[in-house]
């Protein structure tokens, strides 16, 4: 299978993570420009049904590698590097999830090649190379990168590309057996502290609260507004460290990067560490009592006022509109 692009699919309990399927879309564009095949490489446990999913979302062929877990770095890095050595892909795309960002740098060393990180744009250059857009300095600058070595590797941010429409596919499915060697780290326990599943990346509406909400009790207003709008709750680091809400909701440098259609920032001052994570939103509404708060610099509409007054009134108005 010469001349292909690999799209590495991370799975959780046999289901492919969204970013894996999303990456097929840019991979197919590059593949079309260079007459390559788009090959999904699916790794994980119990993959018989999973492989079909990748095919239905547009992969020209699927390679499966059965491993003992949904992820463990040494095994996965070994397996992906071995598959790459066998098939020599022109490019390897990996989702920029926590696991993907753990995996990609190791594979890059094993293949002695470069890797673009957290890619938000992909296009074919006139130079025959893939041009990757990577945010730097917290997203205030975008770097366009090329990779001089093969395969051209990249971790791709979730939510940037749209999945293809699924269709029944007869794409070839190849099972590869790989026995990982040189395993040095071992996951001895997986602890689930956070039971709620919070899908900030795919949310169309996010209502986020910051330190300015003042207390856990007041923070419930953020949840109420999110409920009225059918949105998801986000937060800066302060409410999380104060225990008002779980870490799963964190947006910014040490949390999620989001780009919803509507982002409402409540009592958020707008430190760059947070703005980094939400500045890509289509429409930003900010509520803050400090009229000099930097959050207003990125907001489409800034409301100078006390969140405890503004949010309840906003909820009332929205309810009236939707009645």
């Amino acid at each position: 299978m010469d001349n292909c692009i690999f799209v590495v699919m991370e799975t959780a309990e046999g289901v492919i993570k969204n970013v894996g399927l999303e990456m097929i879309t840019p991979a197919k564009e590059i593949a079309a420009a260079k007459s390559l095949k788009t090959v999904a490489v699916v790794l994980g446990k119990n993959l018989a049904e999973t492989a079909k999913q990748a095919a239905n979302y547009g992969a020209d062929a699927v390679i499966t590698v059965e491993l003992n877990s949904d992820y463990s770095s040494d095994e996965y890095a070994f397996a992906v590097a071995e598959i790459c050595k066998k098939y020599n892909p022109e490019a390897v795309f990996i989702g920029a999830t926590q696991n993907g960002k753990d995996l990609a740098p190791r594979v890059a060393v094993k293949l002695n090649t470069g890797c673009a990180s957290d890619v938000t744009g992909i296009k074919m250059g006139d130079d025959g190379k893939i041009h990757f857009t990577c945010p730097v300095y917290g997203g205030t600058i975008l770097a366009e990168n090329v990779i001089d070595t093969l395969p051209q590797m990249a971790t791709i941010r979730g939510g940037v590309f749209k999945k293809c429409e699924p269709a029944e596919s007869t794409a070839e499915i190849i099972n590869e057996n790989i026995t990982p060697e040189n395993v040095k780290t071992k996951i001895v326990d997986v602890v689930k502290e956070i039971s709620e599943s919070v899908n900030l990346e795919d949310a169309e509406v996010i209502v986020a609260g910051g330190r300015g909400m003042g207390s856990a009790e007041n923070f419930s207003l953020v949840k109420e507004l999110a409920d009225v709008l059918g949105g998801v709750v986000g937060a800066t680091r302060a409410p999380i460290e104060s225990g008002w809400i779980s870490r799963a909701h964190q947006i910014g440098q040490s949390g999620k990067i989001v780009a919803p259609k509507l982002y409402i920032a409540c009592g958020i001052s707008g430190a760059t560490q947070h703005v980094t994570g939400m500045v890509g939103s289509d429409y930003i509404v900010a509520i803050n009592k400090d009229e000099d708060a930097p959050i207003f610099d990125v907001a489409n509409v800034g409301i100078v006022g006390n969140v405890m007054q503004v949010i309840p009134e906003m909820i009332n108005e929205i309810k009236k509109l939707r009645a």
């Binding site: 470069g114 205030t140 770097a143 990168n145 500045v279 489409n300």
Partner: peptide
């Protein structure tokens, strides 16, 4: 291996 071809600023938001 990774070379920076160009740097740009993301499109500015319309003045709010």
């Amino acid at each position: 291996s990774v070379k920076v071809i160009s740097l740009s600023e993301p499109p500015k938001k319309q003045a709010g």
